[in-house]
């Protein structure tokens, strides 16, 4: 009898479910950090599978910077309603009151305040001890060494030189009070795996991933979508309507679109297979300085 075998996606799925279940078994107050993006959508699907037929045994947390695409917020609220999810939306109200925007404070400071600081404050407020996130090791070089269970100190900082060895599927979730663990069930997935899984499982994604005619302006070689009237236009800058989609979704003034005609998931995969630029290219924040992702992670960015 030939030995039964799983395909690569089935193996990845099983590994991720194992990790998610381990979080619920080992921690008292876990949370799923929901970014509304495609990776979050896959993570949510896997988490629901892990506890079927029961409900999700943890809430979702979305850190809303107030600059997300409107489509993302609509999608988020619809998904939470339809799947009866316990969704927490958190915004750094001090930052909002102080008028922190990507334009007034620069992308780096804005991200620090509205994203990194907001996340830390939310984790402190709700006393979450484990946060599930959709980050993958193939996204960026500094992520390649990230553990599946990644310990953060009481200031939510990552110390890449002081990581625990992680062997087999034995995840050590022991931390001291005040410390937390970031958990990455999609560590071993690649961008292609994520898209293939979305395709095969018919997972709902934000429409912005698919090409449509959208108003954009070109800045520093990137196409920025004019999602609302808050985007300051330079003199003579005039939005034009182009067929574009997004490979990654974040804050709209910081997310570059790509010109595309892919209106289906296989279409996205097809374009991706002949693409010349890697995924994070479309994100302004990584380009600040070389090694900037590593710096941000040490400071507590997800």
């Amino acid at each position: 009898m030939p030995a039964p075998a799983l395909t690569h996606l089935e193996k990845l799925e099983a590994e991720s479910i194992h990790i998610i279940r381990e979080v619920v078994a080992q921690f008292e107050r876990p949370v799923l950090l929901y970014s509304i993006g495609k990776d979050s959508s896959v993570l949510l699907q896997l988490a629901r599978k892990a506890f079927h037929p029961g409900p999700l045994p943890f809430p979702l947390l979305h850190v809303d910077t107030t600059w997300k695409f409107r489509d993302m917020i609509t999608f988020r609220d619809r998904v939470a309603r339809e799947l009866k999810l316990d969704l927490i939306v958190y915004t750094n109200e001090e930052g909002r009151a102080a008028g922190v925007t990507p334009f007034t404070h620069g992308s780096r400071k804005y991200t620090d305040i509205m994203k990194t600081e907001a996340l830390k404050a939310a984790l402190d407020e709700y006393r979450f001890d484990a946060c599930l996130g959709g980050a993958r090791r193939d996204e960026e070089a500094s992520r390649a060494k990230e553990r599946v269970f990644s310990v953060r100190d009481s200031h939510h900082r990552w110390d890449p030189k002081n990581q625990r060895p992680e062997l087999w599927n034995l995840y050590n979730g022991h931390v001291n009070p005040g410390e937390e663990v970031r958990v990455f069930p999609l560590s071993n997935w690649t961008e292609l795996d994520v898209w293939q899984y979305i395709h095969l499982q018919n997972i709902d994604i934000v429409p912005l991933y698919l090409a449509a005619m959208r108003p954009v302006v070109e800045r520093d070689g990137m196409l920025i979508m004019v999602d609302d009237d808050r985007l300051p236009l330079a003199q003579g800058e005039c939005p034009e309507t182009r067929s574009v989609r997004f490979r990654t979704l974040g804050c709209y003034p910081l997310s570059g679109a790509i010109e595309s005609t892919a209106t289906t998931v296989p279409g996205i995969i097809e374009e991706m297979l002949v693409a010349k630029y890697s995924e994070r290219q479309g994100r302004l924040i990584d380009h600040d300085v070389s090694g900037s992702m590593e710096r941000k992670k040490r400071e507590g960015y997800f």
Partner: peptide
């Protein structure tokens, strides 16, 4: 060679995963 420190030292300091 991913992390900044090891780039500077010219050695890999930890297990890194590639796909």
């Amino acid at each position: 060679d991913g992390l900044q420190t090891e780039r500077e030292q010219g050695i890999t300091i930890d297990v890194a995963y590639r796909y």
